[in-house]
Design a protein around this nucleic acid. Structure first.
Lengths: 225, 225
DNA sequence: CGCAAAAGTGAACATACTGTGAAATATCTA
DNA sequence: TAGATATTTCACAGTATGTTCACTTTTGCG
């Protein structure tokens, strides 16, 4: 799943956030100050940074600016109640969200989810929606699928179905939901239509059909990390 | 049902929208400008906001940003044809949908339905959909259960039953209630069917069967913090 | 301690579900 | 409009699953 960098000089805060984040299934890396964070960002690809404003060596505000020079990673800032409030929302540095200390870890996690989702959809709209699962490449914005490097030709519905499955990977999708989301709310046909298209999609995916898992009594799921 | 806030400076527009919304069974509150809307949002829990962009005192764009600071309520924006179009879709403020004036109230209501549904499923998917009890992991949205790190394969009813128990952990559940909620109101079978499924579920959970507690003369309960 | 009611259990049987191929429709394209 | 392509429906077969039921075990109580 997503890889999150937590930057705070207080060990206890890092610990609490890590705990909650890992419970949600995120991979977590810690940094104790802004300088460390900048260096870690040069070596790793994080999906999100949670960063305190007030830190020794290099404060969150400056670290964010520094990181943004090279990478466009979403950032959630933590800060004491009245500290720097205006600067943060000047959008000057493009902070994605802002949580006031003391914060509820649950609320923080809710915001993490929102920001991650937003950045994902934003990426899709700017042409950055490429997924790769072994030899299966799914380019949603380019509306192309490659199986072992070769372009797979599919029918429109196959694309739509696959893209919806991939966008919602690891989420159980009922036939009804698929019909509603992929076919549209105004489709009044048979449930089993989904099955037929899953069948054809599986054939198109060849060996990678394994990613499409049947959930008996329920529907289907695209299962991959 | 859902509680909707309508924000527009034109009384007639509010009136029309209110009429249609109430016809659909929604509860409706009105505000005449952005500032009112922000204040109302601090005091109430709305499920959806329909807001005009152009308003005195505080425009819809700013009001939305302000409200989003504290609450993640879906917003549908109303606006004149070319006004602010880009800003709205800049994802900066995360508007959920966008209707151009003059609009058909019917179309607006259709969008309301879609947005409400989306936010509901999103909440389910991003919400507490993953539970962990020692070595027992329950991923409701992925419809997966792990026992000591290994995926447990269960029958549909076992999943449904477990998920219902977990979602209502520490709550005593009678057989009748389980039948009604997990099997459906149209099931007219034997009470003891529940027992059999509890048996199979316990076997699937191995050592973690201990979480499913029998309440003699009553039903069952998933007991965990 | 012994009884009755409640809960656990294993097996049999009927039912429901999914994968699939093929036919029937619908939609697109030249 | 014809021909091609795509979508939907349908029926069949095999298998997984749900339900019932009889029997055993446990529990609470006088």
């Amino acid at each position: 799943m997503a890889h999150i960098l937590i930057v705070d000089d207080e060990v206890n805060i890092r610990k609490v956030v890590r705990e909650y984040a890992e419970f949600e299934g995120y991979e977590v890396t810690e940094a104790g100050n802004g300088m460390e964070a900048v260096n870690l960002c040069h070596e790793n690809d994080f999906d999100l940074i949670i960063m305190d404003v007030m830190m020794p060596r290099l404060d969150g505000y400056s670290a964010c600016k520094e990181i943004r020079k090279t990478k466009q990673i979403p950032v959630i800032m933590l800060s004491a109640r009245d500290e720097e409030y205006d600067k943060l929302f000047g959008f000057e540095i493009g902070v994605d969200d802002y949580v006031v200390k003391p914060f509820s870890p649950k609320e923080l996690m809710a915001r993490v989810k929102v920001v991650l989702k937003r950045s994902q959809t934003a990426a899709e709209n700017t042409g950055q929606a490429r997924y790769k699962f072994e030899g299966l490449e799914v380019d949603i914005s380019g509306r192309e699928v490659y199986v072992n490097g070769e372009k797979a030709s599919m029918t429109p519905k196959e694309y739509d179905l696959l893209f919806y499955l991939v966008r919602n990977k690891n989420i159980a999708l009922s036939r009804d939901r698929l019909l509603e989301e992929v076919w549209g709310y105004d489709f009044f046909g048979d449930d089993r239509t989904v099955d037929t298209h899953i069948k054809m999609l599986r054939n198109s995916l060849g060996e990678y059909r394994k990613y499409i898992v049947t959930l008996r009594g329920m529907g289907y799921k695209f299962e991959a990390n």
